[in-house]
Amino acid sequence: MMILVIGGSGSGKSDYAEELACSLAGEEHSTKYYLATMRIFDEEGRRKVERHRARRSGKGFLTMEQPVRIGDALSQMETGKKVVLVECISNLTANEMFAGPRIRTKEEVAESILKDMERLREKAAHMVVVSNQLCEDGMVYEKATMDYIDAVGKINRALAARADRVVEMVAGIPVLVKQEGGRG
């Protein structure tokens, strides 16, 4: 099963995604992997990562730092059933797009991330993917940022099409956007 969790900043999407991953893994005694995509540049980033780590501690996640090429995480995973939590698509997209020696095109980035996500999905018993809605602040940014918003939008659409369930977090409340095969 693949579940996509979208939401804005401070919407509670990380907490919810972690709970989901735990309940999916709990039923089947799988290994839980947390694929972290955030690159730390400053104190604020460090605090954010610390907050997320503290919340995850005790939940039994194996954390893997994978700021780019998320599919490569597979080579370090054990065989057996796994539940994979990816946090999050918008960071991953920013890294893939801007962190290299040149800015990559939105098409290139969307294609490679979707390919990676598909590799993960094939190997994981369950996958929970966290992403952001970046497209609702009504602002017009310079081209690189608009391309970035496009890329995240394209990836979100493709993942949502693949997902068995799509949930949008609003003020900590999960709002069901899509559920394959009747009620979940």
Binding site: G7, G8, S9, G10, E44, D137, T145, A171
Partner: peptide, 27 residues
Amino acid sequence: IGNGIVPVEAFEREYRERTGRILIQLA
């Protein structure tokens, strides 16, 4: 106010995040 590009300014990021957290509490 949370569904946009991460603001460049630290205060704007703080404002967004804390508004979100307060809404979770109120909800």
